[in-house]
């Protein structure tokens, strides 16, 4: 920009104001290019959101229609709804459990792959395959693996005389089953981001540590891990937000059972909206979940900008 202003041959004060004008002109020009996108995002994201918010303030029921009431009654009902409070507990258990296991598995595999690259680059592709499988297919595969009467795992345990686990008979078992399926489907995301971050760890630091006689384990914990902190933080938050939206795995694997012990908040919103026809109450649950996810996203953006600055 400075170069452009100087080329006009104007004095310093004039050139500064000219630069600002030009910048504004450029910004206006750029905006014209992104107006269609802003319009489409507004149309397909913002409007449905406003619609959902408006719906959550009514008493609209699919069968009974709208009783003419507006207000916060659905949100007041949420506070006293034991099923909603249970759904938050389930959601957090699935999110925290899932993200923790995915971080461990994803990071371990990334570190392993970093050691053997570039000789085994193909291994990266191999480990990313689960990420490409649709969640419904993932759920069906794991459902058959965890169903005692169909499971080859149970058949093998039975063959050697060991007790057969019944995953879907308890809350802990069913949540663990969903966490395992979720980990299988999503650890590649963690692995790829950590692998990319590992490429940025200076080799000379590791070499210096090796020369000083540090073991590989110590080098990892003292040098590599602290340098991976920003990437680990980001990937944790991204996965956390994603896991708040659990649905297909629950729908296919447990239908929210046993009883209601795997009805996470997103699934509960579906139950209220489409099984119970309480669409306005379902919308209130979705709005609450959206606000929660919004705060988490804001947190991600803040941390991201801090890391980048």
């Amino acid at each position: 920009m400075q170069h452009h202003a100087t080329a006009t041959g104007l004095g310093p004060a004039t050139s500064l104001s000219g630069t600002a004008t030009l910048r504004r002109q450029k910004q206006r020009e750029y905006l014209r290019f992104i107006y269609p996108t802003i319009f489409l995002v507004g149309l397909f994201s913002f409007l449905p959101l406003v619609g959902m918010l408006a719906l959550s303030l009514t008493d609209y029921h699919l069968i009974n229609g709208w009783g003419g009431t507006w207000g916060l009654q659905n949100f007041a009902r949420l506070v006293l709804d034991a099923r909603f409070l249970n759904s938050i507990y389930v959601m957090l258990a699935l999110s925290i459990g899932g993200v923790a296991v995915q971080l461990l598995v994803g990071t371990a595999i990334a570190v392993g792959l970093d050691q053997i690259v570039p000789r085994w680059k193909i291994a990266r592709g191999f480990f990313t395959i689960p990420f490409a499988v649709p969640h419904v297919a993932v759920a069906l595969v794991w459902l058959s693996l965890f169903t005692p009467t169909l499971s080859p795992i149970n058949a093998a345990l039975d063959a050697v005389g060991l007790p057969q686990p019944t995953w879907f008979s308890s809350q802990t078992g069913a949540i663990s089953a969903i966490v395992i399926a979720d980990t299988w489907a999503n650890f590649p995301f963690v692995m790829l981001l950590i692998l990319a971050a590992l490429q940025g760890v200076p080799r000379d630091l590791k070499e210096a540590a090796a020369i000083d006689g540090a073991s590989q384990l110590r080098t990892f914990f003292v040098i590599t891990l602290p340098l991976l902190k920003p990437a680990l933080l980001l990937v944790t938050l991204f996965r956390f937000i994603e896991t708040l939206k659990h649905f297909p795995l629950i729908y296919v694997m447990t239908k929210g059972g046993p009883g209601r012990s795997t009805q996470a908040t997103n699934y509960y919103a579906y139950v209220q909206s489409f099984e119970n026809s309480n669409v306005s109450y379902g919308a209130a649950i979705s709005v609450t979940l959206f606000i929660f996810a919004g705060f988490a996203s804001f947190w991600v953006a803040r941390i991201n900008s801090r890391i980048n600055s």
Binding site: P258, G259, S261, E275
Partner: peptide, 19 residues
């Protein structure tokens, strides 16, 4: 449908010993 789902959930919880 809503009533059946409500009873069915509770019955399944009982079968699993949750309640």
């Amino acid at each position: 449908p809503e009533i059946g789902a409500a009873i069915g959930d509770n019955v399944n919880s009982a079968l699993n010993g949750i309640i």
